[in-house]
Design a protein around this nucleic acid. Structure first.
Lengths: 248, 248
DNA sequence: GAATTATCATGTATTATTTACACAATATAA
DNA sequence: TTATATTGTGTAAATAATACATGATAATTC
């Protein structure tokens, strides 16, 4: 270790340098880390979240997010994708880190810090892989009796989602590849919890010019079928509008 | 442990419940956690960030964020406030969690996961408390040679800030309590990296009606002094506009 | 103390965006 | 054939965003 005592005024403010970072790091307190996935889906005009029953006796009967422990050398995002893949068999889905929750008392077995990820997927696109623990799509509206701080986590992810779908076309991940404008509007209304004017909603999306008209129509609807569209992700990526507006 | 083998079709999908959560948690791999604070300040029309020299020999000469190790029973936010307070003596400042960084190779001493916090403060309001390690305000534009993944962290926090100041009046935390409209505009221009029309900028802020006219004027400026204003946080909190606009 | 300099303060016309709102067309089910 | 549910479309009014120029004021210089 640097024990230089010839410090001059100019280098007096320089601390002694640490030569053995490994020793340093192993002296730190360490905590188990988990990732929890808030996986949103959309079905029957309702926003759903994928839940299981907690497997802790302490939380018997309570609902829990899908999560797992971070492995020694696993990247954070990889852990979240692993959890998602284990349950839905999906790999190429939207997934984003939202927030880390670390209240010292959030886990009954000791302090566990969890990193919440949010994922959006089309319920009918992907079969749920494992039916353990009553894995199911739960309506976002009736959440209660959740294990850990999972209710808080879902709420924060839901707020995050509400904000995010207004500035980024994420919502399309929740719809089938081809969708009608009514489905799209229902989705926005369900997530944002508002009613939108149908004509203005259409006008807005057509004006953006990111919808591809598939020249196909809905089938098996008990009324005049609507046209089907695809979202043009490529065009969007190229023309992404650089947001700039002070507005609060 | 529940080894019930009388499972019926109805409860077959229920896993065996874990009775000893503590045993479970101690079996998990554990990681040291740090918090790193990206503390922004504003001075001479430039956005600055508070840095020190890394005290690891491995990163000798490189710049580092202010951070510290999470203590056993300390809340995440508390750790961030502690770091901030140790260096600036401040307690009542803006501070928000931004993102968690956990690349397995980000620390030379072993895997350390860090939670990045962003803080905004008025440089002249708060004396820096400790002058160790060349603590100083560094221009955000010329960042290079940073320790760990700190450059990435600053970049992500900077992007986060650019977005955030457009939808929430955070920027006022960077200004003195009383400021002129020119100062406010300079700040927005510095953070967003754009030029704004002075007349439209004023119009916008006056229309919001959150500025309190102090009936005072700048002093010691070599030109006609501008009026000073305060931001009306109370009024803002009451009238906060519920953002709602699909716009991407 | 007159002239210069740098910035403050203000308004209007143009364009673009948002909102509110009504009716004919079409497929299915009864 | 009729009833029903939903699709598809347009316009007028209100609001917000943009582009842009001139006189006023305090300090500084000559």
């Amino acid at each position: 270790m640097n024990t230089d005592d010839t410090l001059t005024p100019l280098n007096r403010s320089r601390s002694i340098l640490i030569a053995e970072p490994t020793k340093l790091v192993t002296s730190y307190p360490a905590f188990p880390i988990t990732v929890d996935c808030v996986i949103f889906g959309f079905e029957e005009n309702e926003l759903k979240v994928l839940l299981i029953r907690s497997d802790l006796q302490y939380f018997e009967g309570k609902w829990s997010l899908l999560g797992d422990v971070l492995k020694e050398t696993e990247a954070l995002d990889d852990a979240a994708y692993r959890v998602l893949c284990q349950r839905t068999g999906m790999t190429d889905v939207f997934l984003e880190q939202v927030k880390t929750f670390g209240s010292p008392s959030r886990h009954p077995g000791g302090r566990v810090i969890t990193i919440a990820y949010c994922s959006l997927l089309n319920i009918h696109h992907h079969e749920l892989k494992i039916y353990d623990n009553e894995l199911h799509w739960h309506n976002v509206k009736n959440l209660s009796d959740m294990a850990f701080d999972h209710q808080l986590i879902v709420e924060e992810c839901y707020q995050w989602l509400q904000k995010r779908i207004q500035e980024h076309p994420l919502a399309f991940n929740l719809l089938p590849e081809k969708f009608s404008l009514r489905e799209l509007q229902n989705l926005y209304e369900a997530i944002l919890g508002v009613e939108l004017d149908r004509r203005n909603f259409r006008k807005k999306f057509f004006a953006m010019d990111f919808l591809i008209d598939m020249e196909e129509f809905e089938e098996n609807v008990p009324h005049r079928p609507g046209k089907l569209y695809k979202f043009n992700f490529d065009k969007y990526e190229k023309n992404k509008r650089k947001w700039f507006a002070i507005d609060f």
